[in-house]
Write a protein that binds this DNA or RNA. Structure first.
Lengths: 354, 354
DNA sequence: TTGTAAGCGTTATCAT
DNA sequence: ATGATAACGCTTACAA
């Protein structure tokens, strides 16, 4: 007897009919955009319950309003790689917060261009886009986003001219921590650097090598240190991890002859590795060697130590991005933000031994 | 002179008109669902370029096809908390893979019920839902999903009757590793357990306490061990981290009197902590004490050790979930899967000293 | 190979 | 406070 055999899901029109009201009234009952009398409201809701109607179909609503309530976050490569950096997660959390006012969810998109059938920036039903990181690929993503006319915010990446950007005071922050080290009296200082470019090669860095470094974060943090210690030696790590820090730490600390009295690492993870390396070699931190980090993340497994570090406002970074997106979606102008890291003294730095 | 002052974005209809073809033909040029002559195809693309048309509006396409190409992943609480577990990330990666055949993206949704205006399961334009974890809240999410009639898969959670579920052979896997320990000749064995319930209290666990444990994973992995070592002592950690492992490790190893010769930890992170605790106490691993883990994740910072552990197929877990979602979306029946962990011998277990 | 036509389920505008 | 009506931009039978 049914018009169709597969019992089609009830629509707002069905509910309206059952409740004896017009579709527009029924719509308003659910959206609350206009006053509705208590009586009709109740009638509509009753009819909805009756028919198993759970609310307006988001797809149809989206088409009509032109909003999907979804913001894309574009990460580089495998999710694994992106989430390896411990600041990414708090940042995403902040983003979720910043977006909350908008009622928007986060769509994870991978930056791999090729993959057939993969959901891409070109076809995703999103209201805005947040680009993370600073790979060359960012460029391509940016083009797509632009041609779709979507609002976009870039976090720590080489955004073009007019794209609002959330960045960090990397250079200045590095200088702050370097100055702390100098004030303690150190002058034989070494840096454990993040990768200089996509190559990820490890080892001592020839000063001229910096000219060809492509990763902004690495370069800026190094520049901050050399402003204070122009002759600081540097070792590049293969990535930001404790194990990489251990490797770099050994390189720097093994030889008592050239051993620095302080090591400035470009991430907390690396710093933790340096501490491990030092302890392996029988050196005490901070008595024999001071170690400073960068990021201010909680590093698991360095025991009683509290890392001296620059705390970067990871959550706030995400939240700021979310807020800028929200503004753009409201038609307001968005602005770029340069966030400030704060010095956090810990137990891993001290004056060098007499 | 323009019909409107704000230059409206071009639509497929505009493109069709400009190219002198019908809307349906233009549509097909972009979707590729039907053969189109090379000539018209070119004409349409040219017109599209001309008008700055970048492809069909996903919103409209979604409404028409009833598909958004988005799958929601519901995580408990803050993203931070969810991503603390190192298996979550590879799992999400696997999920992305499993979903790739579908061309679907992943929408991150937080499980917090309240939050006004937050994007919720009720209003998100998704084709299917993946529920992760085993909080009581899963229940609520499940109800929403059900009433919306969305396909759903649960990963390691207490899904109801007919919900396809991806689980792990926790009990059996724990038994496997316990047997390995016994075969090495140990009989004084202790367990470092994950939290028993939301309370997260640390310390030695009274055997009767297990009856009230609510976390399946913890209970199952413990049951596997007691099948081999009925009298194994257990200490609960406050969470799955290296630092918690250190605390638990100290509790177990400090007293030489009752010191076990082997410790079975319920996660690799905990195991890494136990190793640190042992080394702090001057014990060598595995000579003085054997340590086994669970998960098979890469633990940063345990230096030369390779953890003896059960490798859980994290990526595959995600991929399986993705594949089941894909099946359901194709109208096929989905099935529950119980995945198998595999034993990976490492350098952290050895026979007890004579 | 291409065109015609009928929606997909909402919501916004305007009138009542 | 409520209702009629017209889009929103696309896809897909089906017809030509």
């Amino acid at each position: 007897m049914d018009p169709s055999d597969a019992p089609r899901r009830a629509t707002l029109a069905d509910v309206a009919r059952a409740a004896g009201v017009s579709p527009s009234t029924a719509s308003v009952v659910f959206s609350g955009k206009t006053k509705v009398s208590d009586a009709t409201s109740r009638r509509v809701r009753a009819a909805a319950d009756e028919l198993g109607y759970t609310g307006p179909d988001p797809l149809a609503a989206s088409l009509r309003t032109g909003r999907s309530g979804i913001v894309a976050v574009v990460l580089e490569g495998q999710l694994r790689a992106a989430f390896l950096d411990p600041v990414t997660i708090p940042m995403m959390d902040g983003l979720a917060d910043g977006l909350a006012s908008l009622g928007a969810g986060i769509l994870l998109l991978r930056d791999e261009s090729g993959e057939e059938g993969a959901p891409s920036l070109t076809t995703a039903p999103v209201d805005a886009v947040v680009l993370i990181g600073c790979s060359g690929r960012t460029r391509a993503s940016l083009d797509i986003v632009r041609s779709r006319g979507l609002p976009v915010v870039v976090i720590e990446g080489d955004a073009g001219e007019d794209v609002p950007q959330i960045s960090l005071d990397n250079r200045h922050a590095a200088e702050v921590i370097a100055r702390h080290i100098r004030e303690l009296g150190h002058d034989r200082v070494a840096v454990v650097a993040l990768p200089l470019d996509a190559g990820h090669e490890r080892g001592l860095i020839d000063p001229e090598r910096w000219a060809s470094a492509t990763v902004d974060v690495t370069r800026d943090r190094f520049a901050g240190v050399t402003a204070v210690f122009p002759d600081a030696r540097a070792v590049a790590a293969g990535g930001s991890s404790i194990d990489e820090g251990v490797i770099a730490g050994r390189t720097l600390l093994a030889d008592p002859e050239h051993r620095p009295t302080a090591v400035i690492a470009q991430s907390d993870l690396l710093a933790a590795g340096v501490i491990r390396a030092a302890e392996e070699l029988g050196l005490r931190v901070p008595e024999d060697v001071s170690v400073a980090g960068f990021d201010g993340v909680t590093v698991d497994g360095i025991g009683p130590h509290v890392l001296t570090t620059m705390v970067q406002p990871a959550v706030q970074k995400g939240r700021a991005a979310g807020e800028q997106v929200a503004r753009m979606l409201r038609g307001e102008a968005a602005e770029s933000l340069d966030l400030t890291s704060t010095f956090r003294p810990g137990t891993t730095t001290a004056p060098p031994r007499g």
